[in-house]
């Protein structure tokens, strides 16, 4: 049986006395686009940092394609690509150099590499500035460059933290179409977002967290039932988070 692309088991993270995440259990099925929703400070970024090895869990496990990231980080990290919320990338490299840097870092095949780099730079509209220092790029351009490296690698799992922030409407539309296409090809996408319309449009499963706890997880129709029949995702989200806050 193929292991689940992402499985979080009892994931807990404490910073001193503060519990940022408490016993989070999420399992993502193959080919799904899973959206992680929650109010500010709910623990979305912490979850993504734990999933990608940027933070170490206080307890619990993260399995990436069946590999425990704590036991075998190198193999687990080969399986996914991360797009963080703030696109910090080496400002003293050019976009062209950064693409090759990533290609070398992930040991990508050299066959036709240059053509693939050009193709991705063109797709994300950065080919014209490929030899400029990244320092001169805007937030959106950096975000697009990171997405271009993700597409260059073509990993099994893509983990994104607020991927639409900083993108213009045209780029945002293009990225959404790419995500849908990737999902159809059996790739797995896990994203955190504040934008409920993006989640409605893209995600096949939604996990809602509040104050570091998972309060709902399921498909749109399953969440509709949990919320007591609310129709729009906005109403469902507000109902569930308010109920969780009240309890």
């Amino acid at each position: 049986m193929t292991p689940s692309p992402v499985k979080l088991i009892g994931l807990t993270k404490k910073f001193g006395d503060f519990t940022a995440l408490s016993s989070l259990d999420i399992e993502v099925e193959k080919g799904e686009i899973t959206g992680l929703l929650g109010p500010n400070g709910a623990g979305k970024t912490t979850t993504i940092k734990l999933m990608t090895g940027l933070l170490k869990p206080t307890s619990g496990r993260v399995l990436i394609a069946g590999i425990d990231i704590a036991d075998n980080p190198v193999e687990a990290k080969k399986k996914f690509a991360l797009v963080p919320d703030a696109p910090f990338i080496y400002g003293k490299l050019t976009a062209w150099e950064f693409m090759f840097f990533i290609a070398r870092l992930y040991n990508l095949s050299k066959d036709g590499l240059e053509d693939r780099v050009v193709e991705q730079l063109r797709t994300f509209n950065i080919y014209e500035v490929a030899h400029d220092l990244i320092d001169s790029f805007s937030h959106g351009m950096k975000q697009r460059l990171i997405l271009a490296t993700v597409m260059l690698r073509d990993p099994e799992i893509i983990i994104l933290d607020e991927p639409m922030v900083g993108l213009d409407p045209e780029a945002s539309r293009m990225v959404k179409n790419i995500f849908k296409e990737l999902s159809e090809r059996g790739k797995n996408i896990f994203l955190s977002t504040h934008t409920l319309s993006d989640a409605t449009e893209l995600c096949s499963k939604i996990a809602i967290i509040s104050s570091g706890r998972l309060i709902a997880h399921g498909s749109y129709s399953e969440l509709e039932k949990i919320s007591g029949g609310e129709k729009s995702l906005e109403d469902i989200y507000l109902k569930i988070t308010r109920d969780a806050g009240a309890s």
Binding site: G53, L54, P73, V74, K77, L82, P84, Y90, L105, Y106
Partner: peptide, 11 residues
């Protein structure tokens, strides 16, 4: 702040 690139990579 770019350290995420190396830390999340299989390096």
């Amino acid at each position: 702040r770019c350290f995420w690139i190396l830390l999340s990579s299989p390096l």
